[in-house]
Structure formats: C-alpha cells, structure tokens
Design a protein around this nucleic acid. Sequence first.
DNA 1: ATACAGGTTAACCTTTACGTCAACGTAACC
DNA 2: GGTTACGTTGACGTAAAGGTTAACCTGTAT
Lengths: 143, 143
Amino acid sequence: MTGLKIDEVAKQSGLTKRTIRYYEQIGLLSSPPRSEGGFRLYSEDHVNFLKKITNAKEVMGFSLAELQEFIKLSDMLELQRHDYRKVKGTELQKEKLEKVFHTVEEQLKLLEQKKKNILKVESDLVSLRDRAQAALIRFEEEK
Amino acid sequence: MTGLKIDEVAKQSGLTKRTIRYYEQIGLLSSPPRSEGGFRLYSEDHVNFLKKITNAKEVMGFSLAELQEFIKLSDMLELQRHDYRKVKGTELQKEKLEKVFHTVEEQLKLLEQKKKNILKVESDLVSLRDRAQAALIRFEEEK
DNA sequence: ATACAGGTTAACCTTTACGTCAACGTAACC
DNA sequence: GGTTACGTTGACGTAAAGGTTAACCTGTAT
C-alpha cells in the first residue's frame, strides 16, 4: 500500500512517466514492487537514484548504456564489500577491479578537462553578453 | 592551392569527414572555397570554429540547431559593431537584442548550476574509485 | 599511364531515447 | 454504480546526428 505512484515519481524526478518505465524496461532502474492491481510502487530511493543518474547523464554526457555500466560496477563493489567470499578464488575479478579503477580515474580526468571547457564556453558567453549590452547602449544613445 | 583538405581538418578537429560535410550541409559551418577539381579547402579558422562549437556542444548539451542560433546571434552582433547603419531604423532589433541578452544570462546561470552538478558527480566518482581501491587492497591482503 | 589514396554527391540505413496512440484495467469520488 | 483520473502493456512513430555504400572524380607517386 505504501510507496509512490509513477506520477509522483515523475514530478519529483523531472522525468516523464514514459521515461521512467523505459528506464525500467532497459534494466537501468530496478523494478519496483507492485500493488494488488499492478501499479508500480516506488520508494524514495528510486527517486534519488533517478535524480542521480539524470545528473550524471547530463554532466558526463553518458549514454544510458554507459550509465548502466557504471551502475553495474558500483553495485558489484557494494556487493563485495558486504560479502567477502564472493571475491575469493576468482582471480579474474582482480583484473576487472583494476580496469574499473582505471576507467574511473579516466573519467575523473575527463571531469577536470570538462571544468576547463566550461570556463572557455563561459568566457565566450560573457563576451557575447557584453557585446549585446554594448549594442543596446548604442541604441539608447542614438534614440 | 592553399588550404587544408577535409581529412586533415577531420584529424585536427576530431570530427569525421561525414560530420564536417554534414555541418556544412545544415549551414552550421560556412562552405569553404573549392579547388579546381572541387575539393574543399579549409582554413585554420574553420578548424578553430569546429573545435569551438564541438566544445560548446558538449559542455552545454546544445543541439546543432541551438548552436546555429547562437552563432547567428554572435554574427549579427559582430556585423552591427562594424556597420552601425544596419541597426538604425529597425526598432524591432532592440527587442531582439534584449532577448539575446536575456538568453545568454540564462545560459550563464545554467553554467553555474552545471559546475555544481559536476562537483556532485565528481564526488560520486571519487567514492567509486575509493571503493575499488579498497577492494583491491583486500585482494592483496588475502593473497 | 596506371595505380591508388583520398575527394565528391546522393541515397539510404541506423541508433538512441524517448513520444504517442490504442485498448484496457484500477482506484477514487460523488 | 457510473464517471473520471490514473495505471498497464504493446506497437508504432520520430527527430537528431551522423554511418554506410555506391558510383564517380582528382591528384600524386611510381
């Protein structure tokens, strides 16, 4: 009985209902429990998750597939932390961990670059704004 | 005879030849002069322009249509600065200028927000990295 | 002079990330 | 108990941003 219905989640997350169902369909969002009649019943966690991934999507320009990658990795790490035995005996996992580590480091470097790029665009926009302002002032002068 | 051929521009800009031609086709990139035989001959300016807009595209998440808007506005302002008479007598232009100014201001605010969002993602990535590292260390310990 | 790398247009194809119905079930309200 | 609002799946549509291919032309290297 408890839980948010999809319309509420849509409002809180800023996504459309269609998008939310779609994310579930492609396995990006975990399927929430259903009510008797079959309605999806979401928790706050779902909402936070959606906010988080839309943010990451926008910031990093990640595709939904890339998002899935990261989420999978993150979940695996969470799982390993709680259940040590899952790790033992599988030497393959170590390579994977190293790859994760590497990938994330690269993403972090990319973020640094992205910050610099933002500054470039910002200065372009500022100069555009200033030129617009200058043109406006010229208008006033020759009224 | 002078000028870069499209393959060189592709290498320098990081775009594909197809994309460069496509940008010209939709009017985003100005048509370069051609050689006798019909080859496109680009200047450094073209390359810089491409770098600039791909950056803006990525940073702001602009669509190609939006990019066109901004370029058109920027060009108009450039033109007005050099030829005052283009401005006089057209009171409509003032509204347009004010709109430009407003739009750009909004974009700048959006950029501020974007910076904050980057920090959020960054901290998520850092925590992911740290967890990966911790898992790696556990590996070493129980070798 | 001929081979081969790289250029040209035009047409068609693809993927991503949803939007938009249609047809139907459910919950809430009066 | 009937209307109305909201939920469900499924199928189809689509806009953006190129990729791909074909059929042909150009330039240059041997």
